[in-house]
């Protein structure tokens, strides 16, 4: 038990180190980019050199990269991500106001992709035959469909053509919001569905061919019990890793889909911020994305020994 605590502690420390390195990259890449953000934001309105200097100072651009980074990191640790250049609002406020829409969209897409992807994987791996071939083809097409293509097709067919779903907006109230978010969620889920269907199929197929499954059949274990206890249970460990990464990647996917469907979420905020060179917002969202990936991966790592006790061996050593 103590060793498990040590294991957890190590994992968390490692995760913190990863975030630290990534934060340096996030800050550095924006600072090293050519072009002056202040000039870009001020745009046509001609500012006097004094005003420009004042703005540069306000956003810490007068400092060197290292001191600037430390300053930014110090504030970020206190949950202060700075102020947006173009909105003149705190980055934290901008993001959290949009987190509701984006969070629901991600959850919706994740549930769709998980249920349909793993369901398809299960049916195709266990049934085989025609179901397997159809599922494999569908998964290949889905994997190869970028979300912006899916978004355009869905808009053309279900919003414009059939008029079943609205084309833009996030709606108000839970049911209305779900209705509005359905097409965007499907657009985001399609590629993830494809990956999960394929990876899930491979993982389940590999487990189905194991000798212990055959041995269990020989003991008279069959049907759903055999699949649940000896196939799905064993495939969980390899699958959870992939599921974690795929679900985290949905956060990044919101950028394209929210823009396509005119949703005011974190993703569309990121696109706007990039086009306006609003670097505090871009840095803030990038840092949140990194944090999300690291948290998901750490959770996956901590869950794995519970799913496959053999991976816990390293814990004791």
């Amino acid at each position: 038990m103590r060793s498990f605590a040590v294991h957890c502690g190590r994992r968390v420390l490692g995760a913190a180190a990863t975030v630290l390195v990534a934060s340096a990259a996030v800050y550095g890449s924006l600072r090293l980019m050519p072009g002056d953000p202040v000039l870009a934001v001020s745009g046509a309105s001609r500012l006097s050199p004094d005003q420009i200097e004042a703005l540069r100072q306000r956003y810490g651009l007068d400092q060197g990269v290292v001191t600037g980074y430390l300053d930014w990191l110090g504030h970020a640790l206190r949950l202060d991500l700075g102020t947006s250049l173009s909105f003149q609002t705190e980055v934290g406020t901008l993001v959290s106001a949009r987190l509701g829409v984006s969070g629901l969209l991600i959850a919706y897409a994740a549930i769709l992709a998980l249920v349909l992807g793993l369901g398809t994987a299960l049916v195709s791996a266990v049934r085989g035959g025609l179901a397997d071939r159809i599922a494999t083809a569908a998964a290949a097409v889905a994997t190869a469909t970028p979300s912006f293509v899916a978004a355009i097709i869905l808009l053309a067919v279900f919003a414009v053509g059939l008029g079943w779903f609205p084309a833009t907006g996030a709606g108000s109230g839970f049911a209305d919001r779900l209705w509005h978010l359905t097409l965007p969620a499907v657009a985001m889920a399609i590629a993830v569905f494809g990956v999960l269907a394929r990876v899930g199929h491979a993982a389940l197929r590999a487990e189905l061919d194991r000798e212990h499954v055959e041995a269990a059949r020989g003991r008279g274990v069959g049907g759903a019990a055999l699949i649940a206890r000896h196939v799905v249970r064993n495939a969980l460990a390899p699958l959870v890793t992939v599921i974690g990464v795929m679900v985290a990647s949905l956060f990044v996917g919101t950028a394209v889909v929210e823009t396509a469907f005119g949703l005011d979420g974190v993703g569309s905020l990121l696109i706007t911020a990039v086009s306006r060179r609003d670097f505090p917002v871009v840095q803030g969202i990038a840092l949140i994305a990194v944090l999300l990936f690291v948290v998901v991966n750490t959770v996956v790592d901590l869950v794995l020994p519970l799913l496959d006790p053999r991976t816990a061996r390293g814990v004791k050593a």
Binding site: R210, H212, G220, N234
Partner: peptide, 22 residues
Amino acid sequence: DVRRHRAAMVFQDPRSAINPVR
């Protein structure tokens, strides 16, 4: 019924014939 009550098999390699995660 035969597999559950009448006949049982001991396999060559217990490592691969017993589910490792249970």
